[in-house]
């Protein structure tokens, strides 16, 4: 048994809330530079250049990259040999969020009830996913998610007969419908398989991969590439104002599924896709 004090968890959660909101993922920045060169729309080029400038201002002047500093999603992979001390793990996570959003001057965007809609004033609670893994380590991945793009997400329960053609169709339709609302250039997370909720979680996990990385499964990597090419031919472009840079990446995660089903979840994300990971 390895003991981990929950205060350590609070600490890393707090740090990741702040750093993800101030420092743009270098992979995204690299993708901006590559896209500026390729983009055919003059306005699109200017927008991409502005996004690079925005990232620099954010880091240099300590202003969040985007004012929607998101609702915090946390993935906890906990080694089964780990024992937490000093309090309740979930409370420690929320405390980290609370401190990070206060000390980092981040926007509090969470309401306590979907109908009554009263702001909780500290951006808690986070949405937390736990997984028990072998060993005595804890991996924590944190991703503050903005809702301009989150609202454009979708899930479909396709029939297996619809196959790859069906998957492509619903992904492209979702991207088309999202358009400017998802703040293109976007990153598209796709969850294939599992059950209804598993597909949705996979699509969120897909967004945690750095842009530019491919699936390790050859047939899925090929589908990712094909979808990305198709999406970039839609004409939506940076900010939906026309162009060939509509998405920076399409990431697909898969899981076994039922003989009768083909769940497809599409989690839309923007050019401010934020994520960080720590291992304790």
């Amino acid at each position: 048994m390895r003991s981990i004090h929950v205060e350590e968890i609070t600490q890393v959660i707090q740090e990741m809330c702040v750093e993800t909101n101030y420092y743009l993922d270098p992979h995204i920045k690299k993708a901006f530079y590559q896209s500026v060169k390729r983009e055919e729309s003059p306005l699109g080029k200017e927008i991409l250049t502005s996004l690079i400038e925005n990232a620099d201002i954010a880091a240099n002047y300590q202003i969040p990259i985007c004012q929607d500093t998101g609702m915090v999603v946390v993935f906890c992979e906990i080694g089964q040999e780990v024992h937490f001390t000093g309090g309740y793990l979930e409370k420690a996570i929320h405390k980290g969020v609370r401190q990070g959003y206060a000390e980092g001057y981040l926007r509090k965007s969470v309401v306590s009830d979907p109908i009554l809609r009263k702001n909780t004033q500290d951006n808690t609670p986070a949405v937390i996913h736990y997984q028990i893994i072998p060993g005595d380590q804890v991996h924590i991945t944190l991703s503050p998610k903005g809702f301009g793009s989150e609202n454009m997400s979708n899930i479909y329960m396709l029939a297996p007969s619809e196959g790859i053609a069906g998957i492509k169709k619903v992904v492209i339709q979702t991207v088309e419908k999202a358009g400017a609302n998802a703040c293109p250039p976007m990153i598209v997370g796709v969850g294939l398989g599992g059950t209804f909720e598993k597909a949705a979680i996979l699509s969120k996990k897909a967004l945690l991969r750095s842009v530019g990385t491919k699936s390790s499964l050859p047939h899925i990597a090929a589908l990712e590439e094909e979808l990305l090419n198709t999406i970039n031919q839609l004409g939506i472009g940076p900010q939906g104002l026309g162009g060939i840079t509509t998405a920076l990446g399409v990431h697909i995660e898969t899981y076994p599924t039922h003989i009768a089903g083909l769940p497809v979840a599409i989690n839309m994300s923007c050019h401010v896709t934020r994520h960080a990971k720590r291992t304790l």
């Binding site: 201002i57 985007c66 900010q239």
Partner: peptide
């Protein structure tokens, strides 16, 4: 339209 996600630049 203003640039979505360029909150730092617009802040200035």
């Amino acid at each position: 339209a203003a640039i979505g996600g360029a909150g730092a630049l617009l802040s200035h």
